[in-house]
Design a binder for these strands. Structure first.
Lengths: 113, 113
DNA sequence: CCCCGATATTCTACATTGTAGAATACTCTA
DNA sequence: TAGAGTATTCTACAATGTAGAATATCGGGG
């Protein structure tokens, strides 16, 4: 999407899930949070791809967690929001709100109720 | 994006501009509405491409206006929202709201104020 | 009648974002 | 050292977003 770097719809969901987790979120939990709150299934690959791209843009940062002795499996990569990510969210929301303002979906289709 | 057909960020803006115009909106005015309300520049090609794709999906319909004697130039193509378009908007908003719920951007970056 | 300015849409090409699932990595336990 | 469990990375492709040039129409003036 060109050079402007606007926030995409799915990027917004991922970013919000990262914020909600307050720094304790990693791929799997971020996916779960989106599935529960947005009520839709999410491919894990989609989450990581989006996270990687947003890290490239400076919207989030990740740090590798140290291996937890009490837990099996590969180390987690935790994600945290950055100021630029917050700005992207604010900007996207503002733009959208300007168009939603005053819109009533119930009467949107040919003046229908 | 895939087979699920979720609403994209720009699609949402265009759809809202179509609703706002109440059937009297066409390419140029839809573009202007987005620019004014969202506060960002929009390429006219982006508007038509999005409109065409949404018509394919059944979210909007277009009709060709009859040539107005008082006006120069090519005939306008007017756009109107359809029920499926309203549903797409509702669904996108619901999913997003579920993740926005309770989020405070001011304290999003490492507990900062 | 033809050209020009004014309007508006269509076309073409490409960049970015979204999706999906298989492949791979790491850790602990037996 | 094989297996189960947990998590990330990789690969490929589809859909959306962007940009601007090209084209179509109509009315007025010469």
């Amino acid at each position: 999407m060109g050079r402007k770097g606007f926030l995409g719809a799915f990027e917004e969901l991922v970013l919000l899930a990262v914020i909600r987790a307050k720094g304790a979120g990693y791929g799997m939990t971020i996916r779960r949070e989106i599935e529960e709150r947005a009520g839709r299934e999410v491919a894990i690959g989609a989450v990581y791809a989006t996270l990687d791209r947003m890290e490239d843009k400076g919207w989030v940062v990740s740090r590798l967690g140290d291996p937890d002795p009490d837990r099996r499996g590969r180390a987690r990569r935790y994600f945290e929001i950055r100021p630029a990510g917050v700005q992207a969210l604010e900007s996207a929301r503002r733009s959208r709100d300007g168009l939603w303002d005053g819109v009533d979906l119930d009467s949107a289709v040919e003046g229908g109720l």
